[in-house]
Design a protein around this nucleic acid. Structure first.
Length: 411
DNA sequence: CTAGGGTTACTC
DNA sequence: GAGTAACCCTAG
């Protein structure tokens, strides 16, 4: 199971749209240790932390820490990694240039801390992050202490923009090199294996292996090509268009991966727990559930539509079973058709969960209504704020419930 | 997250 | 069937 834990953790960390994931907390909570098979998980975690920093618009010394950790994980340093580190270090120093002269404020402290201690340590250890560009910056910043003109020039330049551009570029490259997450790769392999098994009469496993090999090789080649192309345009210090392109490919990839992953997880669940294909439990039904040949009452057209929408996975079979059972009881000569069991909806985030049953109706208490009136007086129609202001009273109400109740009250 | 239309379950 | 309250769905 530990492998699955790692896969799921890696998958969650790499979901850029999930703001609740904190890689550091997640890894420490799961206690994966330092085993070598955690490599993808660790790299993903560092990249995700970097990505979150950029989303928050924060480029600070924590970013330098992350870039140094990334160097330890990926000893082959790319140009964008070096540049990102260099410009981030420059930005971390330049941000202390808010006074008009170097002697005021904390500029010299930052110079000491970042360049003499931190980067000095890197030089001693022979880090690949130390390059010509970094050394040039070091010289310029040291000069700035004595030379007001150099100080002023650096102070007025937009170091932050370039740092963010390189960090964005680095992230894009690193995600591409990392390829699909372990979980997505496994889902893709399962998907291709099944597809090959369905389509070919020959040796399905050979075909699946070939397809998988081709897919993986294509992914790696594409990533490498893209990285090389990017290196060719290393001097372009701009992020225009990159973000959009990245988002678009993420969305398409997410959609495909989510579908395949869902199939794969259903399959895992069937394999792990065959009893998981449980029957529907009716609250007042004390008799044997193993058979059910009673046709479902069809109260109205809309009810049927609703029911089939809520149970879209099982509805075709169930409808057929019900109809056949009712219409052919005679021909079955007393044999009863076992009712097909209903698969349990897999509530696996971030896949969309299958619609849950309707909540039981709960009438509003006078206390709740009063709290809602007071809340609207205080916060207006900010249902979330009203709920948060009265968590105990509205423990069993959603923001939408509050909105609906208010709509009823003002009618 | 919110607004607004739709659905469900219930009463008259 | 109309009216109502609570709940659901989905666009923006």
């Amino acid at each position: 199971m530990e492998v699955i834990d790692k896969w799921v953790a890696e998958f969650l960390i790499r979901r850029q749209h999930n703001p609740r994931v904190s890689p550091t907390n997640l890894l420490s909570a799961l206690r994966f240790g330092d085993s070598p098979d955690c490599f993808n998980l660790k790299v993903s975690s560092v990249l995700r932390d970097l990505s979150d920093s950029l989303i928050r618009g924060s480029v600070d010394e924590g970013t330098l820490d992350l870039l140094e950790i990334l160097e330890k994980l990926r000893p082959v340093i790319t140009e964008s990694h070096k540049s990102a580190y260099c410009w981030t270090a420059a930005e971390c120093t330049a941000r202390f240039m808010w006074p008009l002269s170097a002697s005021e404020g904390l500029f010299t402290d930052a110079l000491e801390r970042i360049w003499r201690e931190r980067i000095g340590g890197l030089k001693e250890s022979g880090s690949g992050l130390v390059g010509d560009e970094l050394l040039r910056w070091e010289t310029d910043l040291e000069k700035a202490v004595e030379d007001p003109e150099v100080y002023q020039r650096i102070r007025e330049s937009n170091v932050r923009y370039t740092a963010i551009s390189f960090l964005t570029q680095l992230l894009k490259e690193q995600w591409e090199v990392l390829g699909s997450s372990s979980l997505e790769s496994a889902a893709q392999r399962m998907f291709l294996k099944r597809k090959a098994g369905d389509n070919l009469d020959g040796d399905p496993s050979a075909a699946a292996n070939e397809s998988t090999r081709r897919l993986e090789s294509d992914n790696i080649d594409n990533a490498k090509d893209k990285v090389n192309e990017r290196y060719a345009s290393e001097e372009e210090r701009t992020v225009d268009g990159q973000e959009e392109e990245h988002e678009e490919s993420l969305d398409k990839g997410d959609e495909m991966a989510a579908t395949e992953l869902k199939d794969y997880l259903l399959e895992i669940q069937r394999g792990v727990d065959p009893s998981s294909t449980r029957q529907v439990q009716e609250p007042n039904d004390a008799v044997d559930h193993s058979v059910d040949v009673t046709p479902q009452p069809s109260t109205s057209r809309v009810n049927r539509t609703r029911a089939s929408r809520q149970n879209h996975i099982e509805s075709p079979q169930q409808d057929n079973a019900s109809e056949k059972g009712s219409s052919s009881q005679g021909t079955w000569s007393g044999r009863v058709r076992p009712r097909l069991s209903t698969p349990v909806p897999l509530n696996v985030s971030p896949l969309r969960a299958i619609s849950a049953a309707r909540r039981p109706k709960k009438f509003w208490t006078p206390e709740e209504v009063e709290a809602l009136r007071e809340g609207v007086k205080e916060y207006g129609k900010s249902w979330k704020a009203i709920k948060n202001a009265n968590p105990a009273v509205f423990a069993e109400r959603t923001e939408v419930d509050l909105k609906d109740k208010w709509r009823n009250l003002v009618r």
